[in-house]
């Protein structure tokens, strides 16, 4: 599996936060909610989402807007929005290290944003329907080889680049739905199927890693606040 680094609860002023690092891409995400929305954001029956993606360098432009839109599309079906009517949830992703040529690609950043946002939502303990996991993939130009979570250099010599996000249930072992499959470049039907296949495997492995991390964190918390009978 690709080496990923995760941590949650890294910020103090927001309700949930996480940092997700996959190869040379690093994203920090903060979640606050449910809070009182501004009048124009309020939805009468559901939770409103305010999704913000901020680039590592420069001002946010259309590229970040597109990422925000994708991220919102992935997160909306995950969150139990009907549980928080007339409320707002702010999700802010700050890309710390892009790890790809920002002029051409956004696949790696998007997949890291999805993972970071999901972990931050878990940390904020907003009600979620299921687990989710996302990976990026690339088909290389010369060899036609399919790479899971490619590096920025490999993306540059790729024929097509993909971001896949899956919804997982039953111990995060079963794929319930494809939340996002965003592909760019030239590819064939067969290649896309392969992307789905390899991506699914990658997502499932990554989900187990994230579960283990979260489980360790919760267990830690329980052990820490456990009252020792003979201690005091």
């Amino acid at each position: 599996m690709t080496t990923i680094k995760v941590s949650t609860g890294v910020l103090t002023n927001v309700d949930g936060s996480s940092q997700f690092e996959c190869r040379d891409t690093k994203v920090l995400c903060a979640v606050t909610g449910p809070v009182e929305p501004k009048a124009r954001q309020e939805l009468p029956t559901r939770l409103a989402l305010e999704v913000v993606v901020r680039p590592a360098k420069g001002v946010p432009n259309t590229r970040e807007k597109l990422m925000e839109d994708r991220l919102r599309a992935v997160l909306t079906p995950l969150i139990v929005c009907s549980k928080y009517p007339r409320q707002l949830c702010q999700i802010t992703c700050q890309i710390l290290e892009a790890g790809e040529d920002e002029g051409e690609f956004s696949q790696k950043e998007l997949s890291c944003c999805i993972n970071a946002a999901f972990l931050a939502l878990i940390d904020a303990q907003l009600a979620l329907h299921s687990f989710s996991s996302s990976v990026s993939l690339a088909v290389l130009k010369e060899s036609g080889e399919l790479v899971l979570n490619p590096t920025g250099d490999l993306l540059k010599v790729s024929l097509s680049a993909h971001t896949l996000a899956l919804e997982l249930t039953d111990g995060s072992k079963k794929v319930a739905n494809v939340l996002l499959l965003d592909s760019n470049g030239d590819f064939t039907d067969a290649q896309l199927l392969k992307v789905l296949q390899v991506g699914e495997q990658g997502c499932l492995e990554q989900a187990q890693f994230m579960r283990n991390f979260l489980a360790a964190k919760i267990t830690d918390e329980i052990v820490r606040t456990k009252v020792n009978d003979n201690g005091n």
Binding site: I122, A127, L128, H129, S130, F131, E167, L168, T169, D170, G171, S172, A176, R211, L214, A215, I218, T219, I222
Partner: peptide, 10 residues
């Protein structure tokens, strides 16, 4: 008995 549980689990 305590089991850890995550969204989407049974």
């Amino acid at each position: 008995m305590s089991t850890l549980i995550f969204p989407g689990d049974q």
